[in-house]
């Protein structure tokens, strides 16, 4: 492997890592506020991709303008799922039960998508999907740049929302100390519902970029969720910054391995990294010890 191929792989990894970071940020946000692991996050990304596909291929709305419709649609879906299922889970065994429930939700969505769109692989098309620019010796596909740009913008937006707005403070407050949040007048259950909505809404953007860079069918959701879970665990569940770091770390390794060894083995790196890290640090790379009083 030449040095330039290596550098190109690193750049590709960072660019795609940004998009994965966005999708994983939604997953980790939902875990943080709800203690729920949303297995349906993967199929929701695919659903977002299909929505973009239907809009661009059949309605004539481009991928980027289409986001104005798909993001709110996914937000509503998230709110509906929180309302319909997540808040019904009892506190005991909540996280474990949530995995089963959201897995079932994922199957239902997969069924609906399959019924409507079939199982053939599709890929999103637009003028900027196949073009690229050549800069500093790197080939940078436009869609990667757009995706990375969108991801960075949305992550920055998410960060701003969480750390600079009143609602964001309420989210973090409910996450850190539920009783105290109740006592200062925060409507914790509404905060949770909206957070889940936001966590799901980001999949619309993730789906658009993913669908433009990969061929997908309803089954792709499983591959995706397994990668997202690896990222979230490695980053420490509930930590958005950790998810970002872990996503870029894994995707860079993935792309380097793909170039240096073989693309078929690259995904193995994800899980191998996860297993190695967990055997050394069961809490993940960036995870903190749960503070538990007797």
């Amino acid at each position: 492997m030449t040095l330039s191929a290596f550098a190109q792989a690193v750049v590709d990894g960072v660019l795609t890592g940004g998009v994965y970071a966005l999708m994983a940020a939604g997953l980790t946000l939902i875990f943080g506020v709800m203690d729920i692991i949303n297995i349906a996050q993967g199929i929701m990304v695919i659903l977002g991709a299909y929505l973009s596909y239907e809009l661009s291929a059949h309605v004539g709305i481009g991928l980027l303008p289409g986001l104005l419709l798909t993001v709110p649609a996914m937000f509503v879906l998230g709110v509906a799922i929180e309302f319909g299922f997540m808040r019904r889970l009892r506190d005991q065994d909540r996280t474990q039960m949530s995995i089963l429930v959201t897995y079932a939700v994922a199957i239902v969505i997969e069924g609906i998508v399959t019924a409507v769109a079939g199982v053939d692989y599709v890929q999103l098309q637009a003028s900027y999907v196949n073009s690229s620019i050549h800069m500093l010796g790197f080939y940078l596909p436009d869609i990667y740049l757009i995706g990375f740009g969108l991801a960075v913008a949305l992550m920055a937006g998410l960060y701003f929302m969480l750390y600079r707005t009143k609602f964001g403070h309420a989210v973090r407050a409910s996450l850190q100390n539920r009783t105290a949040a109740d006592l200062i007048g925060i409507d914790v259950s509404r905060v949770r519902t909206i957070s889940v909505g936001i966590g799901v809404a980001v999949t619309a953007v993730g789906g658009m970029v993913f669908g433009a860079t990969n061929a997908f069918n309803p089954n792709t959701g499983y591959d995706l969720i397994s990668r997202l879970l690896a990222i979230v665990i490695l980053g420490g569940m509930g930590s958005i910054g950790g998810a970002m770091g872990a996503a870029i770390f894994l995707l860079v390794i993935n792309d380097v391995v793909a170039v240096w060894w073989s693309p078929t083995w690259a995904p193995l790196v994800y899980f191998a990294a996860l297993v190695v890290v967990l055997s050394v640090r069961p809490r993940g790379l960036f995870g903190r010890a749960a503070v538990r009083a007797q």
Binding site: H169, R172, A173, Q176, N177, T179, A180, A181, L183, A293
Partner: peptide, 14 residues
């Protein structure tokens, strides 16, 4: 009526 509960009622990461 404001209620300050027993110990640990702050949001530690804020």
């Amino acid at each position: 009526i404001a209620h300050i509960p027993q110990a640990h009622s702050l949001f530690p990461d804020m």
